[in-house]
Nucleic acid binder design. Structure first.
Length: 423
RNA sequence: GGAGGUGUCGCCUAGUCGGCCUAUGGCGCCCGCCUGCUAAGCGGGUUUGGGACACAAAUCCCAUCGCGGGUUCGAAUCCCGCCACCUCCGCCA
Protein backbone atom coordinates (compact mmCIF):
# COMPACT_ATOMS: atom_id res chain seq x y z
CA UNK A 1 0.00 0.00 0.00
CA UNK A 2 1.23 3.49 -0.75
CA UNK A 3 1.33 6.20 1.90
CA UNK A 4 -2.18 7.67 2.29
CA UNK A 5 -0.62 10.97 3.36
CA UNK A 6 1.36 11.20 0.14
CA UNK A 7 -1.86 10.94 -1.79
CA UNK A 8 -3.16 14.02 -0.03
CA UNK A 9 0.02 16.08 0.14
CA UNK A 10 1.51 15.30 -3.26
CA UNK A 11 -0.96 13.64 -5.63
CA UNK A 12 1.18 14.60 -8.60
CA UNK A 13 3.93 12.33 -7.34
CA UNK A 14 1.46 9.45 -7.34
CA UNK A 15 0.28 10.39 -10.84
CA UNK A 16 3.85 10.31 -12.15
CA UNK A 17 4.37 6.89 -10.61
CA UNK A 18 1.17 5.54 -12.13
CA UNK A 19 2.21 6.90 -15.51
CA UNK A 20 5.64 5.29 -15.24
CA UNK A 21 3.97 1.98 -14.49
CA UNK A 22 1.65 2.42 -17.43
CA UNK A 23 -1.35 2.34 -15.13
CA UNK A 24 -4.39 4.49 -14.53
CA UNK A 25 -3.71 8.10 -13.55
CA UNK A 26 -7.41 8.76 -13.02
CA UNK A 27 -7.24 6.41 -10.06
CA UNK A 28 -5.59 9.21 -8.12
CA UNK A 29 -8.66 11.43 -8.30
CA UNK A 30 -10.85 8.48 -7.46
CA UNK A 31 -8.75 7.84 -4.36
CA UNK A 32 -8.84 11.49 -3.31
CA UNK A 33 -12.62 11.55 -3.59
CA UNK A 34 -12.89 8.33 -1.63
CA UNK A 35 -10.64 9.77 1.06
CA UNK A 36 -12.81 12.88 1.35
CA UNK A 37 -15.96 10.76 1.61
CA UNK A 38 -14.35 8.53 4.17
CA UNK A 39 -13.29 11.38 6.41
CA UNK A 40 -16.60 13.19 6.38
CA UNK A 41 -18.60 10.07 7.16
CA UNK A 42 -16.23 9.11 9.95
CA UNK A 43 -16.57 12.55 11.45
CA UNK A 44 -20.39 12.36 11.29
CA UNK A 45 -20.33 9.03 13.08
CA UNK A 46 -17.97 10.27 15.78
CA UNK A 47 -20.16 13.25 16.57
CA UNK A 48 -23.26 11.10 16.96
CA UNK A 49 -21.36 8.54 18.98
CA UNK A 50 -20.12 11.17 21.42
CA UNK A 51 -23.67 12.34 22.01
CA UNK A 52 -24.82 8.78 22.58
CA UNK A 53 -22.09 8.21 25.13
CA UNK A 54 -22.93 11.25 27.18
CA UNK A 55 -26.60 10.24 27.23
CA UNK A 56 -25.61 6.76 28.32
CA UNK A 57 -23.69 8.13 31.28
CA UNK A 58 -26.77 10.07 32.40
CA UNK A 59 -29.01 7.01 32.08
CA UNK A 60 -26.70 5.06 34.32
CA UNK A 61 -27.21 7.58 37.10
CA UNK A 62 -30.87 8.40 36.52
CA UNK A 63 -33.92 6.54 37.76
CA UNK A 64 -37.71 6.56 37.54
CA UNK A 65 -39.40 8.97 35.15
CA UNK A 66 -36.19 10.73 34.27
CA UNK A 67 -34.62 7.45 33.22
CA UNK A 68 -37.62 6.46 31.14
CA UNK A 69 -37.55 9.79 29.34
CA UNK A 70 -33.87 9.50 28.60
CA UNK A 71 -34.29 5.96 27.34
CA UNK A 72 -36.94 7.04 24.90
CA UNK A 73 -34.71 9.79 23.60
CA UNK A 74 -31.64 7.65 23.14
CA UNK A 75 -33.47 4.88 21.30
CA UNK A 76 -33.81 7.02 18.23
CA UNK A 77 -30.22 8.15 18.51
CA UNK A 78 -29.03 4.59 18.75
CA UNK A 79 -30.48 3.75 15.36
CA UNK A 80 -28.81 6.75 13.82
CA UNK A 81 -25.45 5.87 15.30
CA UNK A 82 -25.69 2.39 13.85
CA UNK A 83 -26.54 3.69 10.40
CA UNK A 84 -23.72 6.22 10.51
CA UNK A 85 -21.29 3.58 11.63
CA UNK A 86 -22.28 1.30 8.76
CA UNK A 87 -21.79 4.22 6.38
CA UNK A 88 -18.41 5.06 7.83
CA UNK A 89 -17.25 1.44 7.63
CA UNK A 90 -18.38 1.24 4.06
CA UNK A 91 -16.68 4.48 3.07
CA UNK A 92 -13.49 3.35 4.78
CA UNK A 93 -13.55 -0.02 3.00
CA UNK A 94 -14.22 1.67 -0.33
CA UNK A 95 -11.25 3.96 0.23
CA UNK A 96 -8.97 1.08 1.17
CA UNK A 97 -10.01 -0.83 -1.90
CA UNK A 98 -9.07 2.05 -4.17
CA UNK A 99 -5.76 2.72 -2.43
CA UNK A 100 -4.77 -0.94 -2.62
CA UNK A 101 -4.95 -0.74 -6.40
CA UNK A 102 -1.87 1.44 -6.54
CA UNK A 103 1.47 -0.19 -7.16
CA UNK A 104 4.39 1.09 -5.11
CA UNK A 105 5.62 4.59 -5.91
CA UNK A 106 8.31 4.09 -8.54
CA UNK A 107 11.60 5.89 -7.94
CA UNK A 108 11.95 8.84 -10.31
CA UNK A 109 15.24 7.63 -11.75
CA UNK A 110 14.00 4.19 -12.76
CA UNK A 111 14.32 3.94 -16.55
CA UNK A 112 11.06 4.26 -18.46
CA UNK A 113 9.60 1.54 -20.65
CA UNK A 114 8.22 -1.98 -20.55
CA UNK A 115 9.52 -5.53 -20.45
CA UNK A 116 11.17 -5.24 -23.84
CA UNK A 117 13.32 -2.31 -22.76
CA UNK A 118 16.47 -3.75 -21.26
CA UNK A 119 18.76 -1.37 -19.42
CA UNK A 120 22.04 -3.19 -18.90
CA UNK A 121 23.98 -1.45 -16.16
CA UNK A 122 26.73 -3.99 -15.63
CA UNK A 123 28.28 -7.02 -17.24
CA UNK A 124 30.43 -9.66 -15.54
CA UNK A 125 32.45 -12.30 -17.37
CA UNK A 126 32.01 -13.14 -21.03
CA UNK A 127 30.48 -16.13 -22.79
CA UNK A 128 32.80 -18.97 -23.79
CA UNK A 129 33.56 -19.26 -27.46
CA UNK A 130 32.26 -22.80 -27.94
CA UNK A 131 32.91 -22.73 -31.68
CA UNK A 132 36.57 -21.98 -31.08
CA UNK A 133 36.69 -24.92 -28.71
CA UNK A 134 35.16 -27.09 -31.37
CA UNK A 135 32.08 -27.78 -29.32
CA UNK A 136 28.63 -28.15 -30.76
CA UNK A 137 26.48 -26.56 -28.09
CA UNK A 138 23.80 -28.74 -26.49
CA UNK A 139 20.99 -27.33 -24.42
CA UNK A 140 20.56 -28.07 -20.72
CA UNK A 141 17.98 -30.78 -21.28
CA UNK A 142 20.14 -32.81 -23.66
CA UNK A 143 23.05 -32.38 -21.29
CA UNK A 144 20.97 -33.10 -18.21
CA UNK A 145 19.51 -36.26 -19.69
CA UNK A 146 22.94 -37.20 -20.95
CA UNK A 147 24.51 -37.20 -17.51
CA UNK A 148 21.35 -38.48 -15.83
CA UNK A 149 20.58 -35.28 -13.98
CA UNK A 150 17.07 -34.45 -15.23
CA UNK A 151 14.06 -36.63 -15.97
CA UNK A 152 11.31 -34.59 -17.61
CA UNK A 153 9.30 -37.53 -18.97
CA UNK A 154 8.69 -39.05 -15.61
CA UNK A 155 8.06 -35.61 -14.15
CA UNK A 156 5.23 -35.25 -16.67
CA UNK A 157 4.00 -38.78 -15.98
CA UNK A 158 3.81 -38.20 -12.23
CA UNK A 159 2.83 -34.54 -12.02
CA UNK A 160 2.12 -33.16 -15.49
CA UNK A 161 3.81 -30.71 -17.80
CA UNK A 162 6.47 -28.38 -16.43
CA UNK A 163 7.39 -30.90 -13.73
CA UNK A 164 10.61 -32.85 -13.54
CA UNK A 165 12.72 -35.07 -11.33
CA UNK A 166 16.26 -34.09 -10.48
CA UNK A 167 18.10 -37.39 -10.47
CA UNK A 168 21.59 -38.43 -9.37
CA UNK A 169 23.95 -35.64 -10.45
CA UNK A 170 21.05 -33.19 -10.73
CA UNK A 171 19.99 -33.81 -7.15
CA UNK A 172 23.61 -33.68 -6.02
CA UNK A 173 24.04 -30.35 -7.79
CA UNK A 174 21.05 -28.91 -5.96
CA UNK A 175 22.33 -30.10 -2.60
CA UNK A 176 25.74 -28.63 -3.37
CA UNK A 177 24.17 -25.32 -4.39
CA UNK A 178 22.18 -25.27 -1.18
CA UNK A 179 25.33 -25.83 0.85
CA UNK A 180 27.27 -23.21 -1.05
CA UNK A 181 24.43 -20.68 -0.77
CA UNK A 182 24.12 -21.38 2.94
CA UNK A 183 27.85 -20.86 3.43
CA UNK A 184 27.64 -17.52 1.63
CA UNK A 185 24.53 -16.47 3.54
CA UNK A 186 26.22 -17.14 6.86
CA UNK A 187 29.34 -15.27 5.79
CA UNK A 188 27.17 -12.26 4.94
CA UNK A 189 25.52 -12.39 8.33
CA UNK A 190 22.11 -13.55 7.16
CA UNK A 191 19.94 -15.68 9.44
CA UNK A 192 19.01 -18.94 7.75
CA UNK A 193 15.30 -19.73 7.75
CA UNK A 194 13.15 -22.62 6.61
CA UNK A 195 9.64 -21.18 6.31
CA UNK A 196 6.30 -22.85 5.57
CA UNK A 197 5.43 -22.99 1.87
CA UNK A 198 1.69 -22.92 2.58
CA UNK A 199 0.31 -19.63 3.83
CA UNK A 200 -3.02 -18.03 4.68
CA UNK A 201 -4.70 -15.32 2.57
CA UNK A 202 -3.47 -12.47 4.77
CA UNK A 203 0.17 -13.38 4.14
CA UNK A 204 -0.34 -13.79 0.40
CA UNK A 205 -2.34 -10.59 0.02
CA UNK A 206 -0.04 -8.64 2.31
CA UNK A 207 2.95 -9.32 0.10
CA UNK A 208 1.01 -8.11 -2.92
CA UNK A 209 0.65 -11.37 -4.81
CA UNK A 210 -3.14 -11.47 -4.95
CA UNK A 211 -3.35 -8.41 -7.17
CA UNK A 212 -2.11 -8.52 -10.74
CA UNK A 213 -0.20 -11.77 -10.07
CA UNK A 214 -3.15 -13.68 -8.57
CA UNK A 215 -3.55 -15.99 -11.58
CA UNK A 216 -0.05 -17.27 -11.06
CA UNK A 217 -0.71 -18.50 -7.54
CA UNK A 218 -1.85 -21.98 -6.50
CA UNK A 219 -4.83 -21.90 -4.17
CA UNK A 220 -6.17 -24.72 -1.99
CA UNK A 221 -9.86 -24.03 -1.73
CA UNK A 222 -10.68 -26.64 0.89
CA UNK A 223 -8.22 -25.13 3.30
CA UNK A 224 -8.26 -21.52 2.12
CA UNK A 225 -4.50 -21.52 1.80
CA UNK A 226 -1.97 -20.64 -0.85
CA UNK A 227 1.22 -22.30 -2.06
CA UNK A 228 3.95 -19.70 -2.08
CA UNK A 229 5.80 -18.79 -5.26
CA UNK A 230 8.75 -17.59 -3.22
CA UNK A 231 9.96 -17.61 0.39
CA UNK A 232 9.53 -13.84 0.27
CA UNK A 233 5.90 -14.39 1.25
CA UNK A 234 6.39 -16.20 4.57
CA UNK A 235 9.54 -14.21 5.35
CA UNK A 236 7.69 -10.91 4.89
CA UNK A 237 4.68 -12.10 6.86
CA UNK A 238 6.97 -13.41 9.61
CA UNK A 239 6.90 -10.06 11.42
CA UNK A 240 3.43 -8.97 10.27
CA UNK A 241 1.47 -6.96 12.80
CA UNK A 242 4.56 -6.36 14.90
CA UNK A 243 6.32 -3.26 16.10
CA UNK A 244 10.03 -3.95 15.93
CA UNK A 245 12.60 -2.10 17.97
CA UNK A 246 14.62 0.09 15.59
CA UNK A 247 17.80 -1.13 17.27
CA UNK A 248 17.13 -4.69 15.98
CA UNK A 249 17.29 -3.48 12.38
CA UNK A 250 18.36 -4.41 9.85
CA UNK A 251 17.01 -7.95 10.06
CA UNK A 252 18.60 -9.98 7.29
CA UNK A 253 17.20 -13.41 6.44
CA UNK A 254 17.91 -16.17 3.96
CA UNK A 255 14.97 -18.54 3.53
CA UNK A 256 14.99 -21.83 1.69
CA UNK A 257 11.68 -23.08 0.34
CA UNK A 258 9.99 -24.62 -2.65
CA UNK A 259 8.43 -22.14 -5.09
CA UNK A 260 5.16 -23.00 -6.81
CA UNK A 261 3.97 -21.11 -9.86
CA UNK A 262 1.00 -21.78 -12.10
CA UNK A 263 2.68 -20.02 -15.02
CA UNK A 264 -0.73 -19.01 -16.30
CA UNK A 265 -0.46 -17.13 -19.55
CA UNK A 266 2.87 -18.61 -20.47
CA UNK A 267 1.55 -21.55 -22.45
CA UNK A 268 3.97 -22.50 -25.16
CA UNK A 269 6.67 -20.25 -23.72
CA UNK A 270 9.96 -21.83 -22.66
CA UNK A 271 8.42 -25.28 -22.75
CA UNK A 272 11.65 -27.18 -23.08
CA UNK A 273 13.51 -28.38 -20.01
CA UNK A 274 13.51 -26.77 -16.59
CA UNK A 275 13.71 -23.09 -17.50
CA UNK A 276 10.06 -22.36 -16.70
CA UNK A 277 8.49 -24.88 -14.33
CA UNK A 278 5.61 -25.13 -11.87
CA UNK A 279 7.91 -25.91 -9.00
CA UNK A 280 11.52 -25.34 -8.01
CA UNK A 281 13.45 -24.79 -4.81
CA UNK A 282 14.94 -21.45 -3.98
CA UNK A 283 17.11 -19.65 -1.47
CA UNK A 284 15.72 -16.17 -1.03
CA UNK A 285 17.22 -13.23 0.83
CA UNK A 286 14.94 -10.88 2.72
CA UNK A 287 15.65 -7.69 4.69
CA UNK A 288 13.69 -5.54 7.08
CA UNK A 289 15.40 -2.16 7.54
CA UNK A 290 14.88 1.52 8.25
CA UNK A 291 13.30 3.33 5.29
CA UNK A 292 16.30 5.61 4.88
CA UNK A 293 18.61 2.59 4.57
CA UNK A 294 16.60 0.82 1.88
CA UNK A 295 18.49 2.10 -1.16
CA UNK A 296 21.86 1.09 0.32
CA UNK A 297 20.43 -2.27 1.36
CA UNK A 298 19.19 -2.83 -2.18
CA UNK A 299 22.73 -2.33 -3.49
CA UNK A 300 23.98 -4.73 -0.88
CA UNK A 301 21.55 -7.44 -1.99
CA UNK A 302 22.55 -6.88 -5.61
CA UNK A 303 26.23 -7.15 -4.72
CA UNK A 304 25.57 -10.41 -2.90
CA UNK A 305 23.74 -11.81 -5.91
CA UNK A 306 26.58 -10.76 -8.20
CA UNK A 307 29.13 -12.31 -5.88
CA UNK A 308 27.24 -15.59 -5.87
CA UNK A 309 26.81 -15.81 -9.64
CA UNK A 310 30.39 -14.71 -10.22
CA UNK A 311 31.69 -17.38 -7.86
CA UNK A 312 29.84 -19.99 -9.91
CA UNK A 313 31.46 -18.68 -13.06
CA UNK A 314 28.33 -17.82 -15.01
CA UNK A 315 28.69 -14.82 -17.35
CA UNK A 316 25.88 -12.37 -16.63
CA UNK A 317 24.42 -8.91 -17.08
CA UNK A 318 22.72 -6.70 -14.52
CA UNK A 319 19.52 -4.94 -15.57
CA UNK A 320 17.82 -1.92 -14.08
CA UNK A 321 14.28 -3.09 -14.72
CA UNK A 322 12.08 -0.58 -16.57
CA UNK A 323 9.26 1.13 -14.66
CA UNK A 324 6.52 -0.58 -16.67
CA UNK A 325 7.83 -4.04 -15.83
CA UNK A 326 8.04 -3.74 -12.04
CA UNK A 327 5.99 -5.92 -9.74
CA UNK A 328 3.32 -4.12 -7.72
CA UNK A 329 5.46 -4.00 -4.58
CA UNK A 330 8.71 -2.78 -6.10
CA UNK A 331 9.92 0.81 -6.25
CA UNK A 332 12.97 -0.46 -8.13
CA UNK A 333 14.16 -3.83 -9.30
CA UNK A 334 17.46 -5.21 -10.52
CA UNK A 335 17.59 -8.47 -12.44
CA UNK A 336 20.67 -10.55 -13.17
CA UNK A 337 20.54 -12.34 -16.50
CA UNK A 338 22.88 -15.29 -17.02
CA UNK A 339 24.23 -16.46 -20.35
CA UNK A 340 22.41 -19.39 -21.96
CA UNK A 341 24.67 -20.74 -24.74
CA UNK A 342 21.96 -22.82 -26.42
CA UNK A 343 19.76 -19.73 -26.79
CA UNK A 344 22.61 -17.34 -27.49
CA UNK A 345 21.20 -14.79 -25.06
CA UNK A 346 21.00 -13.79 -21.42
CA UNK A 347 18.05 -15.01 -19.32
CA UNK A 348 16.88 -14.14 -15.83
CA UNK A 349 18.48 -15.96 -12.92
CA UNK A 350 18.03 -13.57 -10.00
CA UNK A 351 15.93 -10.56 -9.13
CA UNK A 352 16.07 -8.12 -6.25
CA UNK A 353 13.35 -5.62 -5.35
CA UNK A 354 13.24 -2.64 -3.05
CA UNK A 355 9.67 -2.58 -1.77
CA UNK A 356 10.28 0.46 0.45
CA UNK A 357 7.38 0.66 2.93
CA UNK A 358 4.79 -0.77 0.54
CA UNK A 359 4.65 -4.33 1.88
CA UNK A 360 5.15 -3.22 5.47
CA UNK A 361 2.05 -1.03 5.27
CA UNK A 362 -0.07 -3.92 4.04
CA UNK A 363 1.38 -6.31 6.58
CA UNK A 364 1.47 -3.84 9.48
CA UNK A 365 5.20 -4.10 10.15
CA UNK A 366 6.48 -1.07 12.02
CA UNK A 367 9.46 0.01 14.06
CA UNK A 368 9.71 2.01 17.23
CA UNK A 369 12.51 4.57 17.18
CA UNK A 370 12.46 6.56 20.40
CA UNK A 371 9.00 8.11 20.44
CA UNK A 372 8.20 7.73 16.77
CA UNK A 373 6.67 4.71 15.11
CA UNK A 374 6.81 4.16 11.37
CA UNK A 375 6.66 1.38 8.83
CA UNK A 376 9.89 -0.42 8.02
CA UNK A 377 11.21 -0.97 4.52
CA UNK A 378 11.37 -4.50 3.10
CA UNK A 379 13.59 -5.84 0.36
CA UNK A 380 14.05 -9.20 -1.24
CA UNK A 381 16.52 -10.81 -3.58
CA UNK A 382 17.15 -14.22 -5.08
CA UNK A 383 20.19 -15.95 -3.69
CA UNK A 384 19.82 -19.09 -5.77
CA UNK A 385 16.89 -20.41 -7.79
CA UNK A 386 17.93 -24.04 -8.12
CA UNK A 387 16.44 -25.00 -11.49
CA UNK A 388 17.72 -21.90 -13.24
CA UNK A 389 21.17 -22.18 -11.72
CA UNK A 390 21.43 -25.87 -12.59
CA UNK A 391 20.46 -24.98 -16.14
CA UNK A 392 23.17 -22.31 -16.28
CA UNK A 393 25.80 -24.67 -14.92
CA UNK A 394 24.95 -27.48 -17.30
CA UNK A 395 25.10 -25.27 -20.35
CA UNK A 396 28.07 -23.11 -19.47
CA UNK A 397 30.22 -25.97 -18.18
CA UNK A 398 29.51 -28.47 -20.97
CA UNK A 399 32.26 -30.28 -22.82
CA UNK A 400 32.46 -31.70 -26.32
CA UNK A 401 31.61 -35.22 -25.16
CA UNK A 402 28.47 -34.14 -23.34
CA UNK A 403 30.05 -34.28 -19.91
CA UNK A 404 29.75 -31.36 -17.53
CA UNK A 405 32.56 -29.87 -15.45
CA UNK A 406 31.66 -29.14 -11.82
CA UNK A 407 32.19 -25.47 -10.89
CA UNK A 408 35.18 -25.32 -8.58
CA UNK A 409 33.34 -23.73 -5.68
CA UNK A 410 30.86 -26.61 -5.59
CA UNK A 411 33.45 -29.41 -5.52
CA UNK A 412 33.92 -29.32 -1.74
CA UNK A 413 30.23 -30.20 -1.44
CA UNK A 414 30.50 -33.05 -3.94
CA UNK A 415 33.35 -34.98 -2.41
CA UNK A 416 35.79 -33.27 -4.72
CA UNK A 417 34.11 -34.51 -7.89
CA UNK A 418 35.33 -32.54 -10.93
CA UNK A 419 33.19 -33.83 -13.77
CA UNK A 420 29.80 -35.39 -14.34
CA UNK A 421 30.34 -37.87 -17.14
CA UNK A 422 27.83 -38.54 -19.88
CA UNK A 423 26.44 -42.04 -19.57
C1' G B 1 -11.37 -35.42 13.55
C1' G B 2 -13.81 -35.57 18.99
C1' A B 3 -14.23 -33.40 24.25
C1' G B 4 -12.92 -29.57 27.61
C1' G B 5 -10.28 -25.01 28.89
C1' U B 6 -7.94 -20.25 27.83
C1' G B 7 -7.22 -15.42 24.96
C1' U B 8 -7.26 -7.98 28.81
C1' C B 9 -3.00 -1.65 26.84
C1' G B 10 5.70 -4.60 26.26
C1' C B 11 5.44 -8.90 30.31
C1' C B 12 2.38 -10.69 34.43
C1' U B 13 -2.43 -9.57 36.27
C1' A B 14 -7.77 -7.57 38.47
C1' G B 15 -12.39 -7.37 36.28
C1' U B 16 -17.47 -12.08 33.34
C1' C B 17 -25.48 -13.08 36.50
C1' G B 18 -24.38 -5.48 31.46
C1' G B 19 -23.88 1.11 33.22
C1' C B 20 -19.17 5.16 38.49
C1' C B 21 -14.34 0.38 33.14
C1' U B 22 -12.59 7.11 31.21
C1' A B 23 -9.86 -1.09 32.17
C1' U B 24 -7.01 -2.62 38.29
C1' G B 25 -2.37 -3.65 40.41
C1' G B 26 2.77 -5.21 39.85
C1' C B 27 7.27 -5.51 36.79
C1' G B 28 9.86 -3.06 33.05
C1' C B 29 10.67 1.59 30.66
C1' C B 30 10.65 7.32 30.34
C1' C B 31 10.61 12.30 32.83
C1' G B 32 11.17 14.96 37.36
C1' C B 33 12.10 15.60 42.82
C1' C B 34 15.20 14.17 46.71
C1' U B 35 20.34 12.70 47.39
C1' G B 36 28.41 13.30 48.08
C1' C B 37 27.51 9.11 43.66
C1' U B 38 24.45 4.88 42.95
C1' A B 39 20.45 2.39 45.09
C1' A B 40 16.13 3.19 47.84
C1' G B 41 12.11 6.67 48.40
C1' C B 42 8.48 10.27 46.36
C1' G B 43 5.55 12.48 42.12
C1' G B 44 4.07 12.08 37.05
C1' G B 45 3.95 9.43 32.41
C1' U B 46 3.81 4.78 29.51
C1' U B 47 -1.65 0.23 23.93
C1' U B 48 -2.33 1.18 18.99
C1' G B 49 -5.01 3.47 14.95
C1' G B 50 -7.89 7.53 13.01
C1' G B 51 -9.36 12.62 13.41
C1' A B 52 -9.77 18.13 15.09
C1' C B 53 -6.36 22.63 15.76
C1' A B 54 -2.51 25.93 9.08
C1' C B 55 3.03 22.49 10.88
C1' A B 56 5.08 20.96 15.74
C1' A B 57 4.20 20.62 21.02
C1' A B 58 0.18 20.59 24.28
C1' U B 59 -4.91 19.61 24.41
C1' C B 60 -9.41 17.41 22.83
C1' C B 61 -12.68 13.74 20.12
C1' C B 62 -13.68 8.61 18.13
C1' A B 63 -12.34 3.56 17.89
C1' U B 64 -9.49 -0.41 20.20
C1' C B 65 -10.07 -6.05 25.99
C1' G B 66 -7.83 -12.55 19.92
C1' C B 67 -10.94 -11.48 15.02
C1' G B 68 -15.94 -10.77 12.99
C1' G B 69 -21.14 -10.51 13.71
C1' G B 70 -25.58 -10.19 17.05
C1' U B 71 -28.74 -8.76 21.44
C1' U B 72 -29.32 -3.93 24.15
C1' C B 73 -30.56 2.87 25.20
C1' G B 74 -25.68 0.84 26.82
C1' A B 75 -21.05 -5.02 26.02
C1' A B 76 -14.19 -6.64 28.33
C1' U B 77 -18.79 -8.73 30.59
C1' C B 78 -24.51 -11.97 27.36
C1' C B 79 -25.30 -14.88 22.41
C1' C B 80 -23.35 -16.84 17.50
C1' G B 81 -19.27 -17.80 14.01
C1' C B 82 -14.03 -17.92 13.19
C1' C B 83 -8.78 -18.03 14.66
C1' A B 84 -4.76 -19.19 17.99
C1' C B 85 -2.86 -21.65 22.25
C1' C B 86 -3.24 -25.47 26.34
C1' U B 87 -5.08 -30.50 28.24
C1' C B 88 -7.09 -35.26 27.02
C1' C B 89 -8.78 -38.92 23.12
C1' G B 90 -8.22 -40.71 18.00
C1' C B 91 -4.87 -40.80 13.71
C1' C B 92 0.02 -40.09 11.89
C1' A B 93 4.91 -38.76 9.42
Amino acid sequence: MIDPKLLRTDPDRVRRSQKARGESVALVDEALAADEARRSSISAFETARAEQKSLGARIAKASGDEKAALLARTKELSGRVKALQAEADEADAAYTEVVKQFGNIVFEDVPAGGEDDLYVIDEVGSPRDFAAEGIEVKDHLDLGEGIGAIDMERGAKVSGSRFYFLTGPGALLEFALIQFALTKALAWGLTPMIPPALVNPEAMDGTGFLGQAADDVYYLERDNQYLVGTAEVPLAAYHSGEILDASELPIRLAGFSPAYRREAGSYGKDTRGIFRVHWFDKFEMFTYCRPEDAVAEHQRLLEQEKEFITALGIPFQVLDVASGDLGASAARKYDCYGWVPSQGRYREITSTSNCTQFQARRLGIRMRDGKTIEHVATLNGTLCAMSRMILMILENYQQADGSVVVPEVLRPYLGGQEVFEAR
